[in-house]
């Protein structure tokens, strides 16, 4: 069933590149950008699993799901009003 894994990997790659392109658009607001980078790390985790690395996938899932998002949004909520730069 390696064709199935191949197709899943291709789909994940497309979605990851799309989310990464959203994440660096200059016009988007900051919460959406941070959300997109979270989406990239989430899909990277599934990609690691397809590459037969469940340890790495679990690390990325545990760290990328909650902790990174919280750090970014916390700092963002403290610097409200300063993101015009």
């Amino acid at each position: 069933m390696s064709e199935l894994l191949l197709a899943m990997s291709l789909l994940l790659s497309v979605v990851m590149v799309g989310a990464a392109l959203v994440a660096i658009q200059p016009g988007r607001s900051l919460p959406i950008i941070i959300l997109s980078s979270g989406l990239v790390s989430l899909l990277a985790s599934v990609q690691y699993l397809l590459l037969a690395a469940p340890d790495v996938a679990m690390t990325e899932a545990a760290i990328g799901s909650g902790l990174t998002t919280f750090l970014f949004f916390f700092v963002l909520s403290r610097v409200r009003g300063g993101d015009r730069g």
Partner: peptide
Amino acid sequence: MADIAMAT
């Protein structure tokens, strides 16, 4: 598959 992931 490694090629796709590496290109990504």
